[in-house]
Every structure is written in C-alpha cells, then in structure tokens.
Design a protein around this nucleic acid. Structure first.
Length: 401
DNA sequence: AAGTCGGGGAG
DNA sequence: CTCCCAGACTT
C-alpha cells in the first residue's frame, strides 16, 4: 500500500508554494498554518508571511502586534505566538541542535539522529505529534508518520475500522501501525525504486529514485483532499487502492460509513453589545487580554449582554468620553467553534479629543486601557478578529464617507 | 478524557 | 443549518 500511495503522489501532487524546494523553515511555517485550516485559505497568508519573515531569525525578532496582523483572519492565534516562542528557542542556540536545520542550506540529518530530532521538535511549543512527523518526514526524509484528519479518514476506510477516530487511543494506534510499516518500507535495505524518464534528454534514460517518507505523508494529504474526501462520496475510481481491492470500505460499498466520529456538542450562545465610539476621525479600540479567546487582539469596546441607550451612555462617560449622539446599529452574528456571538451595536459620536491618543480617566489603565486609532490604521495596523467584521465595515462607511 | 481555541467553504 | 479542515494545549 505504501509504495502505491508514494507513486500516486508523485504523479498527482498539487503544486503548492511550500512544496518548492526543501526548506525546513518553510515546511514548519506551512504546517503550523495548515493546522485545522484548508490549503486555499493558507496560500495567501503563507506568501505574505514568508515575504515579510523569510528566516527563522526574522520570525524570532518580529514584534507581537505585527505578528498578529500577519495572522489576522487565520484563527487559532496561539499557533503564531507558539511558533515565535519556538523560533526564539531554536535561534537561542542554547536550546537545541535544530538551528542549523532551520537556517541556511538544507541539511539532512542521518538516521542515527532521528529520535533526537523528533524529540527536539516535539519539545517546541506548538509542535505536536502530527507536526513533528510532518517536518521530520518532509524536510528531513525521516520515516515518521504524520497522522492527521486525512490519514484517519483514509485508513479508517481502507481498514474498515469502526472505532471512533476522535479518541486519542485510536489515533495512537494509527501512529504506531504507520510507524512500524514506515520503518520497514523506508529502511535502507528495502529501497523500492521508481523508474522515471529523464525529461532533458527526452530519452527514456532511467533514473533511480527512492521512495520518500515525505511523499507518503503528503500522499495521504492529497489523497484525502482530492479523492478520499469527507462529506459525500469519495472518488474511488481515482484511488490507487480502490481498484486493487485494498480498501475494505470500497469492497463492501460502505465508504459513507467511515470514519466513525462522535458528534460534537452544541455551541454556547453569548449576547454582546459592540460600541463604535468615534469623533469622525478617530475610533476607540481596546486590546484583549493576553490569555483566552482572541488573545491580545484589538477590538471595539464591547460588553456582555444587550445594553440599552442609557447603559451605553453611562459606559462611554465612564471611559472619559463626552458622547454627543447614540445610534443603534444592525445586529450581527459570528460563529466560533464552541461559542456563538449574537451582537448588537451602537454608533456613539463623541466630542473631538485632539491630542489624546490613549488614556483612562476614570479607570485604572492596567484594567481597561484603550486607544484612539486613526480610521485608516484600523485596517492596516491593528489585528482585529473577523468576528467584528460587520462593525468594522460599518465604521469604514461612517468615517471615510 | 474533555474543554479551549477561529474562520471559512462545501453540502 | 452541519461538518470539517495538514491539531496543540490546558485542565
């Protein structure tokens, strides 16, 4: 099965930005972005991120607000904070031996160093079993599995496995099974060769190429994305395993029954009130706490529950502003994985605050800091979660015209 | 083992 | 609407 997937991958692989050349830092960045995120969503972020932070050293040195702005809209913002922490560990030198692998020329570690490399990767924040395996196999050619949703879906169908793939015990058993198989197939003594044509000579000169662990792991990904797809019917006619009767689900016509997954719990609903406080030129923004949901990102002042006009006026006065006019805005809804925000908004026109950019007149700055942001900078400088998009869009119309 | 952490595209 | 995505971390 493994050689079949490797060969299928060489023939059908998608041409993706992070698949040009072999660069461990590039692989790392792409794998972090791709956690729970689709390829199409990642591509533009990946290009922008690498053009601004082309090296692990540049990542280590990037200011946090700029880092969050580069990640704005991708979600799971701890991913990028953890990646920067890891970059600082790597470039510190004191931490691991990984620095040479993540900077400079591509250097492939020997098999003897395999367990050490994987262990060092796993020790970095933001890198778990999957990502360590992906980097080790794709960038370093090490025979380590990278078990993600694609692998679980493909293999649960191939094996007709009716266990719940959400259970970590099941994931572990897949990792162990794959690791054992990969050690055998990718061992130095069993180098299956692939015959390929030499395109330059246009002759059928045969080159010897070896099956690579990275091709298997990426083969699972592309197979899962293009053929063995979730939701609906997989395209078994295009599958290298289907016609060879290597897939139990396909043999018995039960493709739809796998993978088995326990259904998720219902989301919690939260009502919130969003305030667009502005003077026609500047708008009030707030920085979220450093932990929890949307940590350290910027937002419009907002409050739990639905406030009426009187309460809104009181809140604005408590912030030290002089409100002139209050107007109710259209409600808006935003859905997170586990929470649903039902928002209502108010536009609050306030007196001009020339000269003031930050401050808190009636509250301690440490507990409720706010800033007066230039309208143009709201979009260019501050990382604002997509949850506020409806109101950010309204604000643009209020201030710019 | 269960909960937290985003956002968007497809069915 | 629901599901799922190249998951990791905390409790």
């Amino acid at each position: 099965m493994i050689p079949l997937i490797c060969r299928w991958y060489r023939e059908h692989r998608r041409d993706l930005p992070w698949r040009q050349g072999k660069n461990a830092y590039h692989t790392w960045v792409s794998e972090i972005m791709l956690q729970q995120t689709r390829v199409e969503a990642v591509i533009p972020y990946y290009e922008r991120f690498l053009s601004e932070l082309p090296t692990v050293q540049a990542l280590a040195a990037c200011p946090e607000d700029r880092l969050l702005k580069l990640w704005e809209g991708l979600g799971y913002y701890n991913r990028v904070r953890n990646m920067q922490k890891a970059a600082r560990i790597v470039t510190d030198g004191a931490g691991t031996e990984l620095e040479k692998y993540f900077s400079g020329a591509p250097e492939i570690p020997g098999r003897q160093e395999e367990t050490e490399i994987v262990k060092a990767l796993l020790a970095l924040p933001g890198i778990g079993n999957y990502t360590a395996g992906a980097i080790a196999s794709i960038a370093f050619d090490l025979p380590v599995p990278a078990v993600d949703g694609n692998v679980l879906r493909v293999l649960s169908r191939v094996w007709g496995d009716n266990r719940d793939i959400m259970k970590q015990s099941v994931r572990r058993s897949y990792e162990q099974a794959l690791e054992k198989a990969m050690r055998t197939v990718f061992s130095d003594k069993n180098t299956d060769v692939i015959q390929t044509e030499d395109s330059e000579n246009n002759k059928s000169a045969q080159m010897v190429e070896y099956l690579l662990p990275g091709d298997l792991n990426q083969g699972f990904m592309d197979l899962g994305a293009l053929v063995c797809i979730p939701n609906g019917s997989p395209l078994c006619g295009q599958c290298p395993l289907g016609e060879r009767r290597l897939c139990r689900a396909h043999i018995s016509g039960r493709e739809q029954e796998f993978p088995v997954k326990e259904q998720k719990k219902a989301r919690k609903i939260e009502h919130r009130t969003i305030l667009l406080i502005h003077d026609g030129k500047k708008v009030v923004l707030r920085r979220r706490p450093e932990k929890g949901l949307l940590a350290s990102m910027y937002e419009f002042p907002n409050y739990y529950g639905i406030l009426n006009r009187k309460q809104v006026l009181q809140e604005v006065k408590d912030m030290g502003m002089n409100p002139v006019r209050v107007r109710k805005l259209e409600p808006s809804k935003h859905i997170f994985s586990h929470i649903e925000w039902h928002m209502t908004g108010y536009e609050v026109l306030m007196e001009e605050n020339e000269g003031r950019t930050t401050g808190c007149l009636y509250q301690k700055p440490a507990t409720s800091p706010w800033i007066l942001a230039e309208a143009a900078e709201v979009r260019t400088k501050y990382a604002i979660p997509s949850a506020y998009e409806a109101y950010a869009s309204l604000l643009g119309r209020m201030i710019d015209g």
